[in-house]
Design a protein around this nucleic acid. Structure first.
Lengths: 344, 344
DNA sequence: GTGAAAGCGCTAACAT
DNA sequence: ATGTTAGCGCTTTCAC
């Protein structure tokens, strides 16, 4: 590799006939530099093509303007969008993101934390779901006073800021829309019950129905595993057992598409014979057959807000209301063809 | 933020009663340290919870073990998988990746290059498609001798290593499978013609047919824009114009699913009345109706190989055969239900 | 408004 | 096998 010698602050200083210090002041936009000196130095920097060395700056200033983001799964649309949102937001605030992933093995987590810590990232973003037990590595980090924000990963004792979608509200949204559509008989296929998101979605859905005096029996509720196949099977089973319903709420789109498939194979038309509403708004939801009505999760927004809060903590030193807070972003109903409105 | 004072190499040295240098040697796994001394130092490091400061090391050694990866679009499954592959591979080789994105605006490219350069990434990975004109910023980088590898982004004069899927071979694979299935009448919906990948896929497809004495007229070829809708429309048009075909090759899955929709709306059964084969193997391909037979692109592998080559260039200083090479990874046929084999 | 001195935590090059 | 001496390129602190 050609190791082209870069221009240093010293050379700029020499060229400008000032001290290194003055150049540094210009670099950091300090006010105490004569406007004329500043101008001259800026010109020389441009002329020489000077590029500050971030490592040297970091070493002296103890700031890296770099964030560590550790994600759980690149295959999941949710996570990739969170990353996208975080990268863009960080960039706008002058930060860069170093990426880690624990998708192969959760054991990679401490290793990535170590690697990123050594590189002195100023804070950590953990993008994962609330399912397995709490990571002691993350807890350690927080205890040490390292700024940490998670997305969708809740700690029991609100140890750190978490940004998430308001799943309860999403469940209510789904129920509300279906009730509005004139439906009376409901069924639900949820995700694995150990997920917090699943409980929240169910609770919201049930609560909204309850307010209308509707209670769905547990025989109308099935548990899937987020997969297409599990939706297909759950719907099939529901039909085999003769459970009739006019509206089906499914906890994610992939599963919902599987369920629609089962309905259509059974000779039922969606939405005429049964409305289906999903959750997520993955790309495929727009071109399933029929296109899926769903509760859209603002995933990029989640990533962006997480990055923003993290930076706030880093720079503010403390931001009371958000340090141990929970920020819930509102999901949104996306109307497509898979739901029938009986009142229209 | 609590700025906990970290243990430095000096403290370890003091504790061990040796010089800083010796500790540094242990840190860098140099051979010239007494096995006993090494052991003692390692113990003390552990005891003290010593973590080397990567910035200081970088400043002194001129090495950051960090790569810059600039991607074009986080919404595209292809790119996210490339990132996943690159991150994992880099990690295995002891490198970390800093992420940039030009998805909002291509003008962000020079800015990210600047930011990453300042942080002294040792090489750049550009993940994007070959469509718009060549980026002068990337060319500049290469000219300066900075290690650069791209995925799917080809320079006319082979300026740098590019890792891509063998699209020509993918086209042939599709044709071969359809011919094998006994098909005689073919149609194709391709992507935008300015894309290199599109030309390669078409060429491979046509060539394979030609070898069997088959030539498809241009009236059986439509151009889509990768979208679901464009596939739907193209297929619809094909049928309206009375073009009959028993096998349809579509340049990506999303478009293929749109085309299948059009066929089914026209009362045609896939695959009985017409086989459809896509390209990509996006998640939705597995649960389209019917599940889509497709040419799978090894996207993670592309990312991994790109990272590996980049690191090779960085560390080797030169690796003749790959410095300006083109590495083509073989796609793979994924058989699902959307294709009919007439010979069985 | 500007400069000099010191040092951030480490490695390189040379000594011993 | 280990220590000494110089930096890496910048910022900080304090002096003028």
């Amino acid at each position: 590799m050609t190791r082209t010698k870069r221009i240093t602050i010293q050379q700029v200083a020499d060229e400008a006939g000032v001290s290194v210090q003055t150049v540094s002041r210009v670099l950091n936009n300090r006010s105490d530099v004569a406007i004329e000196t500043r101008k001259r130095i800026n010109e020389i920097m441009l002329e020489l093509g000077y590029r500050p060395n971030a490592m040297a700056r970091s070493l002296a200033s103890q700031r890296t303007r770099t964030l560590g983001l550790i994600t759980e799964d690149f295959t999941d649309f949710f996570f990739t969008q969170v990353i996208a949102g975080a990268v863009n937001e960080a960039r706008e605030q002058g930060y860069l993101i170093m990426l880690g992933s624990t998708e192969r093995n959760l054991q990679d987590e401490p290793e990535y934390i170590r690697l990123l810590s050594e590189r002195h990232v100023e804070g950590f973003l953990f993008s994962r779901h609330s399912t397995e037990s709490e990571s002691m590595y993350i807890v350690d980090l927080i205890r040490k006073g390292v700024p940490v924000v998670t997305t969708a990963y809740h700690f029991l004792d609100h140890l750190c800021t978490v940004v998430d979608v308001d799943n309860y509200s999403g469940g209510r949204l789904a129920a509300h829309y279906l009730i509005e559509g004139g439906h009376k008989q409901f069924a639900m296929i949820c995700g694995p019950s150990r997920w917090k998101a699943v409980n929240d979605r169910s609770e919201g859905f049930n609560q909204e129905l309850k307010w209308k005096g509707i209670i769905i029996g547990s025989e109308f509720v099935r548990e899937g595993d987020w997969s297409y196949v599990s939706g297909y099977q759950a719907a099939k089973q529901l039909m085999m057992e003769g459970k009739t319903f006019s509206a089906l709420f499914v906890h994610n789109d992939q599963t919902a598409i599987g369920a629609m498939r089962a309905l259509s194979e059974a000779g039922l038309q969606v939405p005429e014979d049964g409305s289906v509403i999903g959750f997520d708004d993955i790309p495929a939801a727009a071109y399933s057959d029929p296109p899926l009505t769903t509760i859209r999760q603002p995933m990029r927004e989640v990533g962006a807000v997480a990055a923003r809060l993290l930076i706030q903590v880093i720079e503010g030193g403390e931001s009371k209301e958000c340090l141990d807070g929970e920020v819930l972003l509102q999901p949104e109903l996306v109307r497509r063809a898979s739901c029938m409105n009986h009142d229209i």
